[in-house]
């Protein structure tokens, strides 16, 4: 088939939108502008992510160190000792031969009432 003379090109002008050169150039420029701005945003987001990762790791390490230091320096919680049994108190007074003062005596009687 190719031995025949090649048919001349057809005029496809009526279906060629680039014949309106100004509109076509504006479309290409608009597409290029939008694509470039999207690309720059993507690159920026990628840079931010790349830089944020080590910064977050440092922040997390510092937070953990501070928290650990605070926990280590805090005094151990103390448990309040229960009041002595009234009978032991009376026995102690008797053994020591010491008379309790009025406040101790009232407290002891109150504890006995609570029983």
């Amino acid at each position: 088939m190719t031995s025949d003379r090649e048919p001349a090109p057809l005029d496809l002008g009526p279906i060629d939108p680039s014949r309106d050169a100004a509109r076509w150039a504006a479309t290409a420029a608009r597409l290029g502008g939008v694509a470039a701005s999207r690309r720059r945003r993507t690159l920026l987001a990628r840079q931010v992510r790349a830089r944020a990762r080590p910064a977050l790791a440092v922040a997390a390490t510092v937070t953990l160190a501070i928290w650990g230091g605070v926990l280590a320096s805090r005094p151990a919680p103390t448990v309040a000792a229960p009041p002595p049994d009234p009978l032991f108190a009376v026995a102690a007074w008797a053994a020591e031969g010491a008379a309790p003062d009025t406040r101790e005596l009232v407290g002891l009687l109150e504890r006995l009432d609570d029983r």
Partner: peptide, 16 residues
């Protein structure tokens, strides 16, 4: 690398 001219040139070259 985000070059706007490059995008526009590619668009002009390949849109048709």
């Amino acid at each position: 690398r985000g070059d706007a001219d490059a995008f526009s040139t590619l668009a002009a070259a390949f849109l048709r």
